[in-house]
Design a protein around this nucleic acid. Structure first.
Lengths: 342, 342
DNA sequence: ACCCGTTATGAAAACCTTTTCATAATATGA
DNA sequence: TCATATTATGAAAAGGTTTTCATAACGGGT
């Protein structure tokens, strides 16, 4: 059926070894034979059999990418950045959506192990009980992206979330806000925590105190953003309402804005809002959402690059060096924090 | 390193053949030996080598899923439905994002061919020059989802887009609109075209004429929705402004709503809007967008099921039967078409 | 003229399964 | 008791590469 390297060899009048050599350029071969072989390959439409190759080389040439939600534009951009880098080298990718559920993450990791991927990029769902130890156990190179699981020494590509939290907070301070609240993300998600730390530092650097009553917690979803604002308003009497809110991601930020609208609270006039991630939605709602953006696409590409380097080091039996690369973020000013509006 | 079936055989004191038989339950084996083998497998932590297996069985146990945009919630739900079905049988999946670009679709198909997937689910970017012929040429079973490419006889899982277009149009008619326009999708995308046909039929069934001046074209993106409304307003003098708009997908529908807001055109008071797809965003904007939704998750699962059946038929050398399954859609009423509002 | 070091190629082993074929052991029926 | 099925197992081939080892040819140095 499908032609094999043997068929090519026969047609070209050479041995399979020689054919392999011209395909992989792994040893010098005479110009004349090279030509015969190339022609035979062409005329038969030969393609190397992936499984035989992988079996012999003990390498699948496939890389896994695990994210919590492929429909979140932040992650789909990350994926695109990584894929473009892998495809550049003719490597294939396997994208896994954990849907934010640890057990789905475990299933996905199991799939990657079964497929014997050469490495994996992972944005783990939680810092505990994730699939990373399983991959490490199976000796599959792993690079963490966006979120850095604690307790493992591994290379990671991150955004400067602490800095981002600080930028957001300072932006609101500069704008004149004095009662700045924070809507936290899910416990155990490092990005969410770091943004909060940045907020705390931002306040303290100006000699302001963190007020417990101005802090709520959500789980990164739209609805949790709505609930968070509700709680914050309910918990304070009018004189202590927040006049600015740093929200740990855009999706919750949008929730906050929608809830504010329902409550007839004017954004940004009575409440300025800043989010993180710069997802598409943030440009589309009314008012548009000020946010902190990270170079997502580049982060994906860099992570892929580092993973490839780790694999290469393993191949040469060189020592793996664990790196930690942090990308800086930038403020994207939009209507939700506009100065003097309202 | 990694234990092989030989190691298991040795440890259990049997031949590799026997081990294979207990793993695959492909022939009767004595209860006692079965136990020995299972224990050996357990104690060594043996896992069958994917490549050797695939090489011998000539099957990868991997299935490809090609969509134009993984971050579009419509497609990510479709993917989830399909994946859940595949995973049920312990099969792996490879998700490909074509980004709406035919050449990226071609590259993705090439990757699937290289990976020797057992079958593919595809939502092709265009009806022409897509990767489907390549897959068919390589004898890889294909099922079309959501969009049905013309010119190939193949099984397809679709939504009743024509019916959907009709439902949307009738909804606006019932609501009292009389100048109903349509924002078309990209040329060559079957779903977009069928929705338009439904709109035409909807008007004609009430004895109304289709007016060229009320029809604009977009490309399924947010911005093209904004542009479309602009064009429609520019093209008509005030007495002939549309009072209702059927928009070929939600993303453009959102664009229309935002543009209307910029133009101080009240939705739904002066202009009622209906979209298609029921994406998350439609619930989040203001006013919320009335839309037509299809059972996306089920469509994905059904498509996977049919693909598996095709593969099974091939295996038995039975004839492939090309099916065509059409799911019906339903109206989701929201603010953008509310009756008596404004 | 002889030896040696390249350069170009082939033969065969190894990678790890599954499956066919053969055989041994056991059970069934007369 | 003997012939015949049936059940349980092993040996070996096949699936398609890559790579090591061996060999042949050839040019250059003495």
């Amino acid at each position: 059926m499908e032609p094999t390297i043997l068929d090519v060899a026969e047609q070209a009048g050479v041995s399979p070894s020689t054919v392999s050599r011209v395909i992989n350029e792994t040893a010098p071969v005479a110009e004349a034979t090279k030509k015969k072989v190339t022609e035979a390959i062409e005329s038969l439409g030969y393609r190397t059999n992936k499984f035989a190759h992988a079996l012999r080389k003990q390498a699948s040439n496939v890389f896994g990418i695990i994210v919590p939600d492929i429909s979140n534009p932040f992650f789909s951009t990350l994926i695109r950045g990584a894929e473009d880098r892998f495809h550049e080298d003719g490597l294939s990718t396997m994208i896994c959506d954990t849907d934010g559920q640890p057990e789905k993450e475990a299933r996905n990791v199991e799939m990657l192990v079964k497929e014997r991927v050469d490495g994996a990029l992972v944005t783990s769902t939680e810092s505990e009980s994730n699939g990373i130890p399983r991959l490490i156990d199976k000796d599959i190179p792993v690079v963490a992206v966006d979120r850095s699981p604690t307790g493992y020494e591994m290379t990671a590509v991150l955004a400067d979330n602490e800095g981002a939290g600080m930028i957001a907070t300072e932006h609101l301070l500069n704008r004149g806000c004095r009662m700045i609240g924070f809507v936290r993300g899910p416990a155990g998600v490092s990005t969410a925590h770091e943004r909060f730390i940045g907020y705390v530092n931002g306040l303290e650097s100006r000699g302001l105190e963190v007020q417990e009553g101005l802090i709520a917690r959500g789980d990164f979803t739209f609805n949790s953003g709505k609930r968070a604002l509700e709680e914050l308003i309910a918990a304070n009497n009018e004189s202590e309402f927040p006049d600015g809110l740093v929200v740990a991601n855009d999706l919750m930020g949008v929730g906050v804005i929608r809830k504010a609208e329902e409550m007839n609270l004017h954004v940004p006039g009575e409440l300025a809002v800043v989010g993180f991630d710069d997802i598409l939605l943030s440009k589309l709602i009314n008012p548009t959402l000020t946010t902190i953006s990270a170079p997502t696409y580049e982060m994906g590409g860099t992570a892929a690059q580092l993973l490839l380097e780790t694999v290469e080091a393993d191949r040469k039996r060189a020592e793996r060096k664990h790196k930690r690369i942090v990308f800086s973020t930038k403020l994207v000013e939009r209507e939700s924090s506009q100065f003097g509006a309202g």
